[in-house]
Structure formats: structure tokens, C-alpha cells
């Protein structure tokens, strides 16, 4: 099969086009970091102010499921990286397989997170009218859970966007539009996926480990 690349008219050569895509995704990720930065700042400020309540609250989260999820997500990062590499080698079917596995791991992460959310809900940890906290300092404990649901929620949202992108890449690879010469869209998706993983790498210790009694 002939691998062909598309050169858009605003660029003078493929190299320039590739570099532009790469610069674009990094600028976008810088923006994303600032987006999450607001939440991380809020969490840091309140954790410093209400350490006791935040530690107490953290112990009610399910550490086992979260650890499992960390493993799932890190594995998906591996399969994603392998997919991008295998595409550059021109191995179409292994690329397709690896992309599929990545999507499935993403779905598995969301499923486990969903189970965790349901469990949290039943334990009365969801802020608002359903919030039921019998221990001390319910106000600040609730603050922890507001931030917990927001941060993991925004992360899950980004993960879903990433999965959507990977599905598009699957289709394009299958059609042959993405191939060993036209690889930038897949590489960009891969970078985005790693960014989403990296957010979790910060969320996991911050939310689950800092207050844990192990």
C-alpha cells in the first residue's frame, strides 16, 4: 500500500506542517495546565488551611480502586505510545489493535471510577443535599469532596475527549489516511493522552495518598 501524506496549502513543506502541529499541541497543553492549575491552587490553599479535615476526608476514599485505576491508566499510556511508534513503522494492524486496547483501557478506567463514584454516593460523600458526614468539621470536609469530584470529574471529561480522539484516529488509520508518512494527528493525540494521564499522576497522590493511613 502507498503511504501518502497531505500537505495543507498554508505550509510549504511537510516538515513545517509537522512542526506546526507539534507546537500547537504543546501550546494547548500549556493552556490546559493553567486550566487545572486553578483547581490545584484551590486544593493546595484549602489543604494547608484545613489539613485535619482534608486528611480525615481523604481516608474515606477507596484507595484500592484508585490504585488499580492508576495501573490501568499507566498501561494505556504504554499502549498509546506503542501505537504511535508502530504507526511510524507502517504496521497498520498492530496500530489498530493498540489503539483499540488504549480505548478499552480508558473505558475500564471510567468504569472503575464510576463504581467508585457510586460507592462515594452511598457513603453520603457527594456534596450538596445528599451529603451526610457524622464526624467533625463537616463544612471543610465537604470542601474536600467538592474539589475531589470537580478534579476527578474534569479529569474524566478530558479522558472521554481523549477516547473520542482515539476513536477518530482508529477510523483514519483503518482508512489509510493516517500512515507512516502522515502520522502527526496520531502523535498529537498521543501527546494529549499522555497529558491526561499525567493529570491523574498528580491527582492520585494529592487526593488519595496524602491523608491515607497505610
Amino acid at each position: 500500500m502507498n503511504a501518502r501524506a497531505i500537505l495543507y496549502e498554508q505550509f510549504s513543506d511537510l516538515e513545517q506542517q509537522r512542526e506546526s502541529s507539534l507546537a500547537g499541541i504543546w501550546a494547548f497543553i500549556a493552556s490546559e495546565i493553567m486550566f487545572f492549575g486553578g483547581l490545584f491552587l484551590a486544593f493546595t490553599v484549602y489543604r494547608l488551611n484545613y489539613t485535619q479535615a482534608f486528611n480525615e476526608a481523604s481516608q474515606h476514599l477507596n484507595l484500592v480502586l484508585a490504585t488499580l485505576n492508576t495501573a490501568v491508566l499507566l498501561t494505556s499510556a504504554l499502549t498509546m505510545a506503542l501505537a504511535a511508534a508502530s504507526n511510524k513503522m507502517g504496521w497498520k494492524y498492530s496500530t489498530l489493535l493498540l489503539l483499540m486496547v488504549t480505548t478499552l483501557l480508558g473505558a475500564l478506567f471510567l468504569a472503575i471510577k464510576g463504581i467508585e463514584y457510586i460507592e462515594d454516593w452511598h457513603k453520603g460523600l457527594f456534596p450538596g443535599s445528599a451529603f451526610a458526614w457524622t464526624g467533625s468539621d463537616p463544612g471543610h470536609v465537604q470542601l474536600f469532596f467538592v474539589l475531589y469530584f470537580l478534579m476527578t470529574g474534569f479529569h474524566a471529561l478530558h479522558l472521554m475527549i481523549g477516547m473520542g480522539l482515539i476513536l477518530v484516529m482508529l477510523l483514519l488509520t483503518w482508512k489509510g489516511w493516517i500512515n507512516s508518512r502522515h502520522f502527526m494527528p496520531l502523535d498529537v493525540t498521543s501527546i494529549y493522552w499522555h497529558f491526561v494521564d499525567l493529570v491523574w499522576i498528580f491527582l492520585f497522590p494529592l487526593l488519595y495518598l496524602l491523608g491515607a493511613k497505610i
Partner: peptide
């Protein structure tokens, strides 16, 4: 634009939530 605007997005989200 790239580095400051997302912070506003998050701030307004928190306020609205």
C-alpha cells in the same frame, strides 16, 4: 491569552458551580 484565559475559565466554573 493562552496562559491566563484558562484560569478565568476555571474560576468562573467554580463560581457558577
Amino acid at each position: 491569552l493562552v496562559l491566563a484565559t484558562p484560569v478565568l475559565a476555571m474560576t468562573l466554573t467554580l463560581m457558577a458551580l
